[in-house]
Write a protein that binds this DNA or RNA. Sequence first.
DNA 1: CGGGTGCTTGATCTCTATCAACTGGTGTGG
DNA 2: CCACACCAGTTGATAGAGATCAAGCACCCG
Lengths: 253, 253
Amino acid sequence: MSGNRALVQYLAKLERRGALEPDDREAILGLPGVHREYGPNDIIIPQNADATHCILVESGFVSRVKTLESGSRQIVAFHLPGDAVDLQSIMFVDTDHTIQTHTPARTYWIPHRDILDLTVRRPAIARSLWLDTLIDASIFRDWTANVGQRRAQARIAHLMLELGERFRAIGMVRDDSFELPITQVALAEALGLSLVHLNKSLQALRHEGYFRASGRRVSLKDVDKIAKATGFDPSYLHLDSSLIKGVEEPIPA
Amino acid sequence: MSGNRALVQYLAKLERRGALEPDDREAILGLPGVHREYGPNDIIIPQNADATHCILVESGFVSRVKTLESGSRQIVAFHLPGDAVDLQSIMFVDTDHTIQTHTPARTYWIPHRDILDLTVRRPAIARSLWLDTLIDASIFRDWTANVGQRRAQARIAHLMLELGERFRAIGMVRDDSFELPITQVALAEALGLSLVHLNKSLQALRHEGYFRASGRRVSLKDVDKIAKATGFDPSYLHLDSSLIKGVEEPIPA
DNA sequence: CGGGTGCTTGATCTCTATCAACTGGTGTGG
DNA sequence: CCACACCAGTTGATAGAGATCAAGCACCCG
């Protein structure tokens, strides 16, 4: 299998959480689809659309945004290369949020039908995709707690640590730093803070030596200290299999 | 099938979103398990435990709470009778939050193994449970946006409308009012507000005639007006099948 | 060079948190 | 039956976090 890069990355992500059988692996790598390219700040799927495909991020930085009646926006998730952005749309007629890029991005669109078909035929894949959405939900819970309970500086630091770990998992951390290719407006929308207050809090964090930023490259100083101060424990991200239950043999018929 | 009440309720909930075949229905109603009873404010599963069972709520009001390093608590979900509280634990070794009661409650504990076994044998059930967790995630996203973007009064009203709709779906709304059996402390923890501020905002909402409360019975006045003001659209709750994609025939082999 | 975008700054306002006290109801035990 | 404790809810005063308003700056790009 020559291997479409998006599928290879996504499969790798799934397998970090638990190995698959060769047949299942092949089945995933064989998923049909089309590539689409976007510029920065493009809308991939608007709110209230009827999605017919799942989208894998091959490169670029993508987010999901809910726009409220007041016009204010809440980013509810960030997606890095190798993520499936729109797995939940497989069951829903209407998308309840917009999917948009922050950078130029390359995506791979897989028809829902082909994914559903795989899950019907291959329980291990069904399980693996279900797990993917459960981890998504785990991250949403963490975000709710972060936004609901922590004050600005800790809230920012917590998100930075999350992104740091996720970038690390896909090999995009070098010299303890990573590229965070989003504007402060977007960061503020993710954190439930105003732009101005975010900006000042970021400066305070830099001033106190918690991290440095040059351009859009972020380097976290003394991750352990920040993690302790903000109560960051990466286990909710489930980046590896250590906290995921093994596959048990089904009870024989 | 005589029918264990918890399973009957849960099945009914699943089927509101799409009918199941008789065989699948029987299989769900046949799930083994044990009942457990709790008093108010009991802990059902503590944070960082290793859950081995999924829990259905048969009666009572239950929530999931994340306790942060600072000691502050964020309620990330409420669960009503007929809900599966702990479906996500089926894949995870560690629970990342506490499950606790607010009222006396009766639950039904189903071993993970039996549920996993069903999903392996019966794709339609796998699909239905996956859908249940996707809807959970949809609600988490909504909570994040609610806590992140709305100010106190609208935030409270939005949650009230959510709970109203969910109580209505299980037939627990009478005379346009429902019993909300939680303290203001718990409400504040769900909304990311301080107790004092919650209390005053509640009074303001009552004063402005948005709703009445006698004891713990809440009646929302002019739901449509509140819904409009707070941008409440119940579709994210997916209480019926109207926005859920139908089951497509798998592609023949 | 002009204009756009993203970042920064200062001033002001207002929500919301915090602190502290008090009420009313319920329940328990002497 | 009263005294007491306890809990949920309420209130007022004060402080502080964060939002809003309004400019200004720097960089990039056509």
